[in-house]
């Protein structure tokens, strides 16, 4: 058990290091998130009311796309150089390794994005009441995005151009998280109770955390055969 835990920690550290090294997905997602949100004031015009109205939705949708952008490398990079074989043969077992890899994906791509989101809220003229819920809903919601996305990444791991198929598989499954994430922020801005939205968002995340690794591990086993 202790050895498995040590291996999981090692895998998380390995993937976070790879994610933030040269050509890694961490920097890429974060810059994409920043630039894509910045485009909206240019596109829709600088009226503060319009920006306030669309701010939660825009930040959430772009966060979702930034997460998707990095997903196709989640297992593919290791599949291509053969280290996925080693990960699958780790004495910890494939399931803990997959959980560790998904957590590493969340830490290296989504967590920086969650931390940066207040800055982008400012840019989008988000009302002061919305900030806490923005960070909270992104923190809870992006976890679901990583765990659900992992299934798609595992299913498309052996495909050369799996990115588009991955989006088609995963984006529909992101809709519930998106809805409750955005409505929670809207509720906070309007001074309503945010608990129902947060609870439903957390429920989706919990289901994803349970099902994601199991489905991903099975898909990886199929890909390695």
């Amino acid at each position: 058990m202790n050895a498995s835990f040590a291996i999981m920690i090692s895998v998380i550290m390995r993937d976070v290091r790879l994610g933030w090294s040269q050509g890694g997905t961490g920097t890429m997602s974060l810059s994409f998130f920043f630039i894509a949100v910045t485009l909206f004031p240019f596109g829709v015009g600088p009226e503060p009311q319009v920006l306030t109205r669309i701010a939660p939705g825009v930040i959430w949708v772009v966060a979702l796309l930034a997460c998707l952008l990095s997903l196709d490398r989640l297992y593919q990079a290791d599949y291509e150089d053969g280290s996925l074989d080693d990960l699958a043969l780790s004495p910890a077992g494939l399931l803990p390794v997959v959980i560790a890899k998904i957590l590493a994906h969340w830490i290296s791509t989504s967590l920086p994005l969650v931390l940066l989101s207040p800055l982008l809220g400012l840019l989008m003229n988000l009302p002061a009441e919305g900030y806490v819920q923005l960070v909270l809903s992104l923190a809870i919601g992006t976890l679901a995005l990583s765990f659900i996305g992992s299934i798609g990444a595992a299913l498309t791991v052996a495909m050369r151009r799996g990115g588009v198929l991955l989006s088609l598989l995963v984006l529909p499954l992101y809709i519930p998280s998106l809805i409750f994430g955005v409505t929670g922020i809207d509720a906070a801005i309007m001074g309503l109770d945010v608990l129902p939205h947060t609870a439903l968002l957390s429920a989706i995340t919990l289901v994803a955390v349970v099902l994601g690794p199991i489905a991903s591990a099975s898909a990886i086993r199929l890909a390695l055969e």
Partner: peptide
């Protein structure tokens, strides 16, 4: 798992170039 006993090296070298 057989991996508890065996050490496998396939055709790919499983090295991270960076």
């Amino acid at each position: 798992p057989f991996s508890a006993y065996a050490l496998y090296l396939g055709h790919q070298n499983a090295l991270k170039p960076i």
